[in-house]
């Protein structure tokens, strides 16, 4: 109950933050504008339908990721320091609130805020995708409708893979939020922002750190060990980066549901792990 109260307060605080509102509005605006980008394409060899749709999807997923990335970083870095700065933490901890409840409540609030933002963007994005697909045609005779004429047919309107895409974005940034939450226990917001950014970039480049630490790598053994440690410790954000797979499901996916399930567990365990470390540190911290 206490955790839920803290979470609700965190959500309320976060949603009132102008900077987060701006990220959300700008992202939604750009997602809608991407519709007109794609309409400028006219030299495509297939009347543009497949490239146009792909453009809308890739822009939308990319913009949502950027917005969610900024929201989780900006929101996450101030989660704990803000309470300390405003001295509200003293009031909270003076009440029968355990420190772990405070941390968990804060994290839960941050994740809920992220979920609300990603959900709003996701709904707009999927609506834009459906709008783009309306009237888009392809030169295929569909199995389902059985139209015998050679010619153009309406493409499928709803692509479930985009829903997976939105979920992946949310999962990815719940992990980043837990990273910045951990850092916010002992770092200032500015340092935390750059640390979080660094961890994210290294995490996205997981295939690179893996290659550098592999047996085939020509690097010095010490460096290999260094990259191996980096690869193991830093959350593998690349696991959530499946845009190409989602844009071309026919070429990649065997079971997106299975993969999403595993990655959800990964995000959950990793977030719990970092939250736990944050709790351990926060318990030792003199506040």
């Amino acid at each position: 109950m206490i955790i839920w109260s803290i979470a609700k307060t965190t959500v309320g605080d976060a949603l009132r933050k102008k900077v987060l509102q701006i990220f959300l509005v700008v992202a939604i605006g750009l997602i809608i504008i991407s519709l007109s980008f794609s309409q400028t394409l006219s030299f495509s060899s297939r009347a543009g339908s497949s490239t146009d749709i792909m453009l809308v999807k890739s822009f939308g997923l990319g913009l949502m990721a950027v917005a969610a990335w900024l929201i989780s970083l900006v929101m996450g870095v101030s989660l704990i320091p803000q309470e300390i700065e405003r001295r509200t933490i003293y009031t909270i901890l003076a009440k029968p609130v355990k420190r772990y409840e405070f941390i968990v409540g804060k994290y839960l609030g941050a994740v809920l805020t992220l979920a609300i933002n990603v959900a709003i963007m996701g709904v707009v994005f999927i609506a834009v995708c459906v709008f783009k697909a309306m009237g888009a045609e392809q030169p295929v005779t569909p199995e389902e409708t059985g139209l015998p004429l050679v010619g153009m047919q309406q493409v499928g309107l709803f692509d479930w893979n985009m829903v997976w895409g939105v979920i992946m974005i949310f999962l990815q940034f719940t992990v980043l939020t837990s990273v910045v939450l951990l850092f916010s226990v002992f770092l200032t917001p500015t340092v935390n922002f750059f640390m979080g950014l660094g961890v994210y970039i290294v995490g996205v480049m997981a295939p690179l750190t893996e290659t550098l630490s592999s047996k085939e790598s020509q690097l010095h053994p010490v460096l290999k060990v260094f990259y191996r440690v980096i690869h193991i410790i830093v959350p593998n954000f690349d696991k959530f980066n499946v845009t190409n797979t989602l844009l071309h499901p026919e070429t990649h996916i065997e079971s997106m549901a299975k993969y999403t399930g595993i990655v959800t567990l990964y995000a959950l365990f990793y977030s719990l792990l970092l939250m736990l470390l944050a709790v351990i540190i926060f318990r030792k911290k003199e506040v």
Binding site: F37, T40, L41, F43, M54, S58, L61, L208, N241, L247
Partner: peptide
């Protein structure tokens, strides 16, 4: 593109290609 936005870059470049074409 290394930060995970390859497809966005691909899309942006393709829009640019259209401009060059015209």
């Amino acid at each position: 593109s290394v930060a995970g936005f390859k497809e966005v870059i691909a899309g942006a470049l393709w829009v640019r290609a259209d401009t060059f074409f015209h």
